[in-house]
Computed example of a mutant assay.
Amino acid sequence: MRVLVVTDAWRPQVNGVVRTIEHLAEEAPAFGAEIVLLTPDRFRTLPMPTYSEIRLALARTSVVAGMIAAAEADHVHVATEGPLGLAARRACLRAGLGFTTSYHTRFPEYLRRRFPVPERWTYAWLRRFHNAGAGTMVATESLRRDLEARGFLRLMPWTRGVDSERFRPIAGADEFGLPRPIFLSVGRIAAEKNLEAFLKLDLPGSKVVVGDGPARAELAAAFPDAHFAGTLEGERLARAYASADVFVFPSLTDTFGIVILEALASGLPVAAFPVTGPRDILEGTGAGALDQDLRAASLAALAIPKDRARSVALSHGWGEAARMFVENVRSVLARTPPKRAT
């Protein structure tokens, strides 16, 4: 089975969508599926307003339709709702091709943080976008319930995973050389990540932020006692996790939070608000502390054994995530045999 995945999120972006698709392409062949990609690097791009690090593809529907036909795929999966995803959706509808989508990002909440746009307007647009497909893949049960209540149809589970060989406890790791305990946050530094809720906490030891984004300069100036390490990758990122004592995840709007699994795999207990993502991963595991008081959660997480955190992560492999994706596609094809674009 050959599946074309169309995504606006791609390298050099560093985020959960890119990591998910990278791992899907690596793991899917074990389940009888080949993943081919249609990404913005095949088009001219422009910087996204208010977030220049993200480049938006100038993708005409006719051109994308030709690329879909050339891929000779059995199925098309539209992973994102950006310009490339929109063009692919239109091309599939015009050609009568079945397709699936995935819901990675809470755009209504993100957009509201930047502009005075009512969430209900954006949700109405997203509902129309996704309901045109044969199914929408979602990462967590709480997200499924939320979207179902908002009128989204044909929701399908597609979890996330972690590379537990790369992200692991490393004895003696001390990437930062800062006073302990070290409270760490990793991710995009942008308004929607709610990092200020972490940085303003009165905590012992040190606060470290790994990542980059449009809000970095402002937050670094406002919180000079915090250490901003910039973007780290590979072994340096693994050592950064292993050098900390608690992982703090302040986001209120993520649909999952792959960084939570990376932290757990590194032996870090997690402190977070009890919202979609953290709740689905951590509730009932004893590997994290969920509390509306993020300071209380952070201090409580200090008492959690690191081996407990690691054991929870080991049950979340990327192979299982790929299996779920492939089974979702097969279930759609069983209902509607594939029709290839011409």
Rank of each mutant, 00 (worst) to 15 (best):
R90Y: 04
Y123K: 00
L86S: 15
E148P: 02
G98T: 08
V186L: 06
A171N: 03
A191N: 04
E148Y: 13
R180P: 05
W125C: 12
T101A: 15
R90K: 07
H104K: 00
V186P: 02
T136S: 03
A173W: 08
K200M: 01
A190E: 15
E109R: 11
L184R: 03
R112A: 12
L126M: 12
Y123N: 03
R113C: 06
G96N: 09
P181M: 06
E119S: 07
E165T: 15
M156H: 09
T101G: 13
G205M: 04
L201H: 00
P157F: 11
V208K: 08
P214C: 11
E141V: 07
P169N: 07
A191I: 09
M137N: 09
Y123V: 03
V210C: 07
G172L: 07
E192Y: 14
R145W: 11
L203W: 08
R89W: 13
R145T: 05
P157R: 15
P181R: 05
R120F: 10
R89E: 03
S102Q: 15
V210Q: 03
S102G: 09
I189H: 10
R180H: 08
G187W: 00
L155D: 05
R150G: 04
P157Q: 06
V186C: 02
G211W: 12
A134C: 14
A132M: 09
W158E: 10
A88F: 09
R94L: 03
Y123M: 01
F183P: 01
R113L: 01
P181Q: 11
P169C: 08
L111I: 03
V186S: 01
D202W: 00
T100I: 13
D163Q: 07
P179T: 05
H130N: 08
V138I: 15
G205D: 05
G133K: 10
D174C: 14
E196G: 12
R127D: 02
E165K: 14
L84T: 10
A215E: 11
G211A: 11
L178G: 03
W121A: 13
E109N: 12
E192P: 04
V208W: 01
T101D: 12
A134G: 10
G85H: 15
G85D: 02
A87I: 00
R150A: 11
A191C: 11
F107H: 14
S142L: 02
H130K: 11
F99P: 00
A139V: 05
R114W: 14
D174W: 11
R166I: 14
D202L: 04
A95G: 02
N194E: 12
C92T: 02
A149R: 06
G135P: 01
L97M: 04
P116T: 14
K200F: 13
L195R: 10
G151A: 08
C92Q: 02
F176L: 00
A171M: 04
R166D: 02
L86Q: 14
Y123H: 09
P83I: 03
R89H: 12
G133E: 10
G213A: 02
L155Q: 11
A191M: 13
L93I: 05
I182F: 05
E196S: 14
D174F: 09
E175L: 09
D174P: 01
K200P: 08
A190C: 01
R90M: 04
P181V: 08
W121P: 00
P108M: 07
T100V: 14
E175Q: 13
A190V: 05
S185T: 15
S185L: 01
R90A: 15
G211Y: 08
N194T: 13
K207D: 05
A87W: 02
F167Y: 13
H104G: 05
P157D: 10
